[in-house]
Nucleic acid binder design. Structure first.
Lengths: 148, 148
DNA sequence: ACTTGAACTTGGAACGATTCTAAGTCTCTT
DNA sequence: AAGAGACTTAGAATCGTTCCAAGTTCAAGT
């Protein structure tokens, strides 16, 4: 559900970063917020087209960049795969399920983030940390049912 | 310096993975081992050509894949940049220097790796962890000289 | 040694995600 | 209402990587 509050917040963040609020950016923002997955630019494009059929892919890229720039969404870069976009602004890791291709968010406690920063030698100044896992997810019932 | 020991090790690892040892794979392996940086496939291609001018880029990709498959080198995937290859087989993180584009290895203590695995919810089975930092490196003399 | 099939190499074509370009539109400011 | 600059659009261009078809090499069995 689209709220005025969200769109006002969007407009403020955009103008604060020297960018303009446009209908396209609003729709793209709502689409990324609307579903708790990690869509690619192409997937965002498909979802946006139902609300705004004339939008172009280049504009979707432009809007996603603008939202990343002003800190409203995050860009998740996978291995040799299209970038994905994520509305979860908490510091978190990503788990790439190799079987399904899905990405799941994994919380990171604050003290662990601090410890990661402490790994760095003197003089190294990290502006961002990327932690990602790659593997598979077993269904929970299989876990409880299994014999061993 | 190319040693027979290294090439024998290479041949063994390759055949163990059902792959063949070829002159191209030996040269590519030596090139990646020969310099402690993180070259792209294109850079490996350039370096290999002096020893083997007729090699093709497709073969370099093939060789790098083969070496990654049998565990002799690692592939480092950066954000929207060409893959890089790394002969450091210890579990380690990468620091991407945004100013120079260079990648530096950062050690990770074993207990921290265990703790990272423990972040995952029940049923999540990670086969690999990727930890990378992004930022800048200050020169050490600037650190010791500075006033504050 | 000879054959056969699979693995490998090669150059070039193809691919796919992203970025660029040029033209047109919108919107702030004056 | 005019000018400047930001934005959108469609399509072309880019670039790392993979695919393809043809030729070569290798290992194993006769």
């Amino acid at each position: 559900m689209i709220t005025d509050t969200q769109n006002t917040a969007l407009a403020q963040r955009l103008t604060h970063s020297g960018l303009r609020s446009t209908p396209q950016r609003e729709v793209v923002y709502q689409v990324v917020l609307g579903k708790r997955d990690h869509p690619t630019a192409e997937e965002v494009f498909d979802r946006v087209k139902s609300a705004m059929p004339t939008i172009s892919l280049a504009t979707v890229y432009n809007c996603l960049d603008a939202l990343v720039q002003c800190g409203l969404i995050k860009q998740v870069n996978s291995v040799r795969e299209p970038s994905r976009y994520c509305p979860n602004l908490h510091e978190h890791a990503h788990f790439h399920d190799e079987a399904t291709g899905e990405i799941h968010d994994v919380d990171i406690p604050a003290d662990l983030i601090a410890r990661l920063h402490n790994l760095l030698p003197k003089g190294y100044d990290a502006v961002s940390i990327d932690l990602s896992f790659r593997g598979s997810v077993r269904a929970l019932h299989a876990l409880t049912d299994q014999q061993n």
